[in-house]
Design a binder for these strands. Sequence first.
DNA 1: CTTTTTGCAAAACCTTTGCACAACC
DNA 2: GGTTGTGCAAAGGTTTTGCAAAAAG
Lengths: 120, 120
Amino acid sequence: MRYSRQRELIIEIIKGRKDHPTADMIYYSAREQEPNISLGTVYRNLKQLAEEGVIITLETEDKRLHYDGDTSRHSHFICNGCGKIIDLFKPANVPSEIKYAGLTVTGEKCVYYGLCGNCQ
Amino acid sequence: MRYSRQRELIIEIIKGRKDHPTADMIYYSAREQEPNISLGTVYRNLKQLAEEGVIITLETEDKRLHYDGDTSRHSHFICNGCGKIIDLFKPANVPSEIKYAGLTVTGEKCVYYGLCGNCQ
DNA sequence: CTTTTTGCAAAACCTTTGCACAACC
DNA sequence: GGTTGTGCAAAGGTTTTGCAAAAAG
């Protein structure tokens, strides 16, 4: 991966926020500093960065991919009221059933749904 | 929700298989018994059934929604090799961090990624 | 008879891609 | 200079929707 100003900016944006933005949120944010950046470039870089493991993707019920700059092992909570995504740094335990089934686990994505403090 | 032949068929298809099909897989399966059923009808019913809690949705990295007729509490394993989705009936534990954060959990979706027995 | 559901086709939506040009090394 | 990345616009794939007709109760 070569250096590119656009990619650095995208990485900086994602790593600098904790709200798990979608591609177009990142696009609009990027345009503030780089007015000519295109949506295609944003998508291309996000895909590449996710494949390289620099960032993480979060598949949610809103059908849009969310991105997370924090690659440490953690889970997420999504509020059914306001849609906010909250990091949970105590990840779920891998079910013991997995070893009996002969499966090798290399990653996990656990999402908890419910209501946040403001919404209940 | 009124009775409809098409909806009954869709429910029967989903509840009758354990492979977590996508909308179009269900559509093709449904057409075998109901040749004139439309994709729109399948999508409309799947959405409705998921909202009513009759079936469950699974958001995966392949960007297509998968449906699960088993609504009991369980997790999933997705093989990075063959894409197969395997049920894990020992669900993950809810992280204790949740209660400290003032969150109320009403649901969870845990997906484990790795390789199944055939792919490693 | 009123309301819900359907089939069809078009639209909406998010994401990917082809291409010529620019940037990187 | 060869390769990778960009901007733009068009295309792709999945899901939703408007509408008139059909089915349900």
